[in-house]
Structure formats: structure tokens, C-alpha cells
Amino acid sequence: MEPSRHRVPAAAALLVLVAVAAVVGRCGAQLPIPVRTDGFLYGGKSAAPAWGDAVVVEAFFDPVCPDSRDAWPPLQRAAAHYGARRVAVVVHLFPLPYHSSAFMACRSIHTVHKLNASAVYPLLENFFKYQEGYYNMPTYTKTRAAVVAEIANNLVAPVIGEANLAAYRAGFNDSQSDQATRISFKFGCARGVTGTPYYFVNGIPLSDSGSPMDYNKWISTLDPLVGKM
């Protein structure tokens, strides 16, 4: 039976961070620097405000995490309430290691971003809508290739069109999409993310991270900040 909620106990989270730190230490102190800042701005580049001119909300989501799925609609509603010029929302992908399809889901989104940046959020929402089919138990007996094919045909094709599937498959198998997904995970670990959803507002982590925040909570959190701009 698939767990309905996915959180990391404090002791387990500490072990994960220690393990990541040990791996980083063996490989060298410097994490890979990506060619672009990690994360996807909601609304696209046209909505991007000048730095410092908006309250910046960062959300770390796993596309196959139920809590991430439940966290997105109220955050999306809050973003619409304020508008991109006052509140900028950036989503970072964080594939949880105990979700067997999470890395493939995140890699798919990175691949689609290279083909069509405007397709990122429709694909993320497709994963949220149909994520139960990609939980650990439903995919337990399936090969990785079979799961990737299902993602391509059932989730990606409706977003980018059948004609672009060949380009998607080529990009998915490109080392760049693999590296981008690894960097997303390492970026989250470097900032102390241990589960999803995880939130930062203007760079400061919220105490409500780990659980979906409802619309009213977002409003009560953001209103005092927006009012001082």
C-alpha cells in the first residue's frame, strides 16, 4: 500500500544529509555550478521582476509526492492573487530517493524545459494529476524503460505534442538532462532540504515546510511582506 504522506523523520533526515556531505567531501568541496540558476520561474521569463522588487517564494517539489501535489494549488492561487510583479514563485525539483520514479519524472521536466520552457508547469501538473500510477507499488514490476515510455506517451505527449516526442526522447537520453536533475537534488541538499514540499521566502526557510500550506496561510505569510514593498 502506497503511503499517503511522505516525510523524512528527523533522524533519517540527518543521516541523509551526513551521507550527502560525505559523498561531496570525497568528490571535492565544490558542487557543480549549473549554466543557469536552478528552478523554474512560474509565469515564464516575461513575468520575472527585477531582483529585490518582488517577494520571492521558492518551493521544492517532488512530482510524485502527494504532499507536493496538494501544496501546489494553494501556492498557485496565492501567486495569482498578488501577481508576478509582487510575488515571484520559483519551483525547484527535488527527487526524493525513496520514490522510485521521482528521478525520471524530474528528468522529464528538465528535458521538456529545453524543448519548450512554457511546457514545464503543464507537465508538472500532469505528474501531479496522474502521479498515483507512478508510485512505488504500481511500478514495482515494470522496467525503467517501460516507465519512461509510459511517461512519454501518457504525460509528455499531451503537453508537447506527438510530433515532438522524438526530440524529447533524444533529450531524455542526453547526459545534460541527467546532470541537470542531479544538480537540482544537490542544490536542495546544499540548502538543507530534507523532504517535499519545502519552502523558502526571500531565502528564509518556513517552519511549515514538509506539509502543504493552505491559501490563507500563504496570505498571512506574504501580506506583511508585500505591504512593506
Rank of each mutant, 00 (worst) to 15 (best):
A119R: 03
K129C: 09
P73V: 12
A167L: 14
W51N: 14
F200N: 08
K142L: 15
D67Q: 05
R69F: 03
W51P: 15
V90N: 09
A22L: 10
A12D: 09
V201G: 02
Y134H: 07
Q131V: 03
V159M: 08
C65P: 00
V120R: 03
V87I: 01
T141A: 14
V201A: 08
E132S: 07
N154Y: 07
V20S: 06
V20C: 10
Q76Y: 14
G203W: 05
G83I: 11
L225H: 00
A102C: 04
P122E: 06
G195I: 01
M213P: 03
A190M: 03
V159E: 07
V226Q: 06
A152F: 08
H99R: 08
F94T: 12
M104Q: 09
K228I: 09
E162Y: 10
L124K: 00
C189E: 07
F185K: 13
K142Y: 04
A105C: 11
A78I: 04
S211K: 00
P197Y: 01
S68H: 00
M213V: 05
N202P: 00
A157H: 04
A117G: 09
G203E: 02
Y42R: 15
P158M: 04
P212V: 01
A11H: 08
W51C: 14
E58S: 08
G203Y: 10
V55C: 07
A166E: 12
M1Q: 10
Y121T: 07
A22Q: 11
A149T: 14
A152N: 02
N173H: 13
V20Q: 08
A50P: 13
D38H: 11
S209V: 12
K217L: 15
P3S: 02
H81W: 04
H110I: 06
V120D: 12
T37H: 14
S184A: 12
V56H: 11
G25C: 04
Y168F: 15
S184D: 15
G83A: 06
V148T: 12
V226W: 07
G227L: 13
N216Y: 12
M137I: 15
L31W: 13
T111E: 09
S207K: 14
H113E: 15
S118Q: 10
S108F: 10
R144Q: 13
P73T: 04
G227A: 15
Y134A: 02
V24S: 12
A54F: 07
T143Y: 00
K228Q: 08
A102N: 02
A167G: 05
T141F: 10
G25E: 10
V120I: 14
A166N: 11
A11G: 10
I151W: 00
P49T: 11
R7M: 03
V148M: 01
S207V: 15
A22P: 05
L17S: 15
F94E: 04
N153T: 13
V55F: 05
Y82G: 01
E162R: 07
I219V: 15
H6F: 05
V120Q: 02
D62T: 11
G25D: 10
R85P: 09
A146P: 07
Y168R: 01
